[in-house]
Each structure stands twice: as C-alpha cells, then as structure tokens.
Amino acid sequence: MAVTVKFFASFREAMGKKQESIEGVNNVASLLDELVRKFGEKLAEQFYYSGTRELRKTMNILVNGGGLNLPHDLDKPLKDGDVVAIFPPVSGG
C-alpha cells in the first residue's frame, strides 16, 4: 500500500507522468520532499519559488478530494490508500 499522487497540467509536464505511487510518507510535506528526492530539481522548481523551500502560491493540492489550505495544511497526515491530486488552478477568463 502507498499514497497515489496524480499530477495535472504543468506538474504532469514536469514529471512526464500522470501519477506515481509513493511509500513511507506520513504527511503532505514529507510527500513533497519524497517527490523532489525522487524526481529532482525540475519538480522542485514547480513546487517552490526558485532557491527556496517556500511553496508556490500557484499550487493547489487535494487529498481524497478535499482542497488543502496551503501552506497551513502541509502537516496534513497521509495514510495508505490516500489519493493526492496536485494542480495549478488557473485564473483568467
């Protein structure tokens, strides 16, 4: 069992894949760390402002369909079987 992470739009382009199964993470922050460890700088650049660990405000994360209030909810616990969706909400019209 593991956490399933689904990537959308620019995150998918950076990852080059639609989804990934990640084991051994207990909250959202540790999941992002693990993803960056596994997939490298290109993904870190999508998550954080250049050269920092400050989460980009263009990032939206849902856990099992529930939108997170970031960065406050970075400590939201994750358990096996959870589905995490990462997407950049767009604003224009």
Partner: peptide
C-alpha cells in the same frame, strides 16, 4: 489550460472546497 466545475448548492462541493485559497 482550462478548468471547469459545476456547483450545485447543497448537492456537491463549491469552488472554495476545490480551490480554498486564491491563486496569486
């Protein structure tokens, strides 16, 4: 890129449920 969601009050989530914080 585009996004779309239909909000039926009292039957499903609203925009704030999906995007709780205003993007920059």
């Amino acid at each position: 890129v585009g996004q779309l969601m239909t909000i039926l009050p009292s039957r499903g989530p609203c925009l704030k449920c999906a995007v709780p914080k205003e993007p920059p």
